[in-house]
Amino acid sequence: MNHASAAVRPKTYLNVLLILGVTHLLNDLIQSLIPAVYPILRDKYQLDFIQIGVITLTFQIAGSLLQPVVGAVTDRRPFPYSTVIGMLFTLSGLIGLAFAPAYNLILVSAASIGIGSSIFHPEATRMARYASGGRQGLAQGIFQVGGQAGGAMGPLFAALIIVQRGQQSLAWFGVLAVMAVGLMVWTARRHDVIKTSFIESVKVKSKSGHKVKTYPKAMVTTGLIVLTLLMFSKNAYVESFRSFYTFYLIDHFGVSVRTSQFMLFLFLFSSAVGALLGGILGDRIGRYKIIWISILGPLPLTLILPYADFHWTVVLTVGINLIMASAFASILIYAMELAPNRIGLVGGLFYGLNFGLAGIAAAVLGALADKTGIENVYWLCSFLPLAGLLAWFLPKIENS
């Protein structure tokens, strides 16, 4: 009996998961430099909030349109080295952003970084699932904490380096892209071994009576729509901070650019902690419960936030993002369990489409900020978590 149980349990490739987490960190660190330099770009090119929002929109659309397509294609024919190609796009966009002499070239550079991200995420998500050994919450927690930590480090580097050295210092971060390429080659070389181990474990489970559960098409469609809307509401809220939080702090509280970047770092770093904790707890208490906790938990805090002073603003934003980020891994895994044979598509959908929709939200919020003021934007965004009540329509599935 013990031998059978051991045979059923697949191997967890922790070293691969950690390297995937590091590559996700490097990928998202580079892309987080785009909003991190917005205050510099606004002053240098005399940009308004609509133009700032359009930069975010360009990056997010470029990073979203390709992801479901890449995911669907690699579901049929996996291409582990696609992550390397994606990072080369990111590197070219980073260098372009460092030396862009005009606004239109900033948009082109942002689009190139977005394309790189769209190629990276579907294949890396699949690799994390293969390497999970059945511990999907841990795997996605490690993978996502890498991305969230990288996203948080962009504002920190902006505060310490770019604010001091200027726009062209962005090119220095090309070294990180080169490091990422080396790590991506390492993981790509292990793809076949990890995939074989994963497939064998599925076969053993099937022979032991543990078959992969399939659900009716209508149920899968309903579940994916609800999960997409949940992810969108969370991404739109986070994007409002990623794009405009520094301006809110500068204009509303009169802090320096450097201080605003440190505050953005704290906000985004809390995403990394929340993602890891949510992934681990999801394995223990279930994805469904984690999703509901992440929905109801931040709502009172978001409603209080527009009326808080500076110090309470810092405390509330960290708390909000800590709770909100806890659902990211659970939402993604829930979607994978609904559609277990379409992992690339799920990864592309949730890393791609949702971030594209969040980019549209950023552009709309930028236009609203120009017309009514940045304070009204955050008052409006305080109600976004209410969309999370759509989880009521989420179908219950096994192991959730």
Rank of each mutant, 00 (worst) to 15 (best):
S240Y: 09
D251I: 06
F244R: 00
N235Y: 13
F244E: 00
S243I: 03
A218P: 03
F247E: 00
N235L: 12
F247N: 03
K213M: 13
F244S: 03
L227C: 09
T222P: 01
K203Q: 12
V204K: 10
I250Q: 11
V255R: 04
S206L: 11
T221G: 10
F241Y: 11
H210R: 12
L227Y: 07
S243L: 03
S233H: 00
K203R: 13
K217F: 08
K211C: 14
V238G: 10
I225R: 03
L249C: 08
K217N: 09
F247Y: 10
S233E: 04
T228F: 10
I250V: 11
L227K: 05
F232V: 13
H252V: 10
K205L: 11
V255W: 05
V257E: 09
T214D: 10
T259G: 07
L229P: 05
V226R: 00
R242E: 11
K207S: 15
V257F: 05
S243K: 03
K203I: 10
L227G: 02
I225C: 11
T246E: 11
F244A: 01
S260P: 01
N235R: 11
P216K: 14
S256F: 06
F253C: 02
K213F: 12
F241A: 07
K213Y: 14
S233I: 01
K217H: 11
S201A: 15
N235A: 14
S260V: 03
V226K: 01
V226Q: 00
L229S: 07
T221P: 01
Y237T: 04
Q261F: 07
S201D: 09
R258S: 12
M263P: 03
S243E: 04
R258D: 05
A218Y: 04
K217T: 12
S260Y: 01
K234H: 14
T228C: 08
Q261P: 01
T214P: 03
K234F: 12
V202F: 02
M231L: 11
A236C: 11
H252L: 04
T259I: 09
T222F: 03
L229W: 06
D251V: 08
S233Y: 03
K211S: 15
V226T: 09
T246Q: 11
F247A: 09
F253R: 02
L264P: 01
Y245C: 04
H210T: 05
V226Y: 02
G223E: 07
L230D: 07
S260A: 15
Y215N: 06
F253S: 05
F247G: 02
K234S: 14
E239T: 14
S208W: 05
L227T: 07
G209P: 02
G209H: 04
S260D: 04
K213A: 15
S201K: 01
V212W: 10
K203D: 14
S240V: 06
F262C: 12
K205S: 15
S243V: 07
Y215H: 09
M263N: 07
S206C: 08
M263R: 00
K213R: 15
T221K: 12
S208K: 13
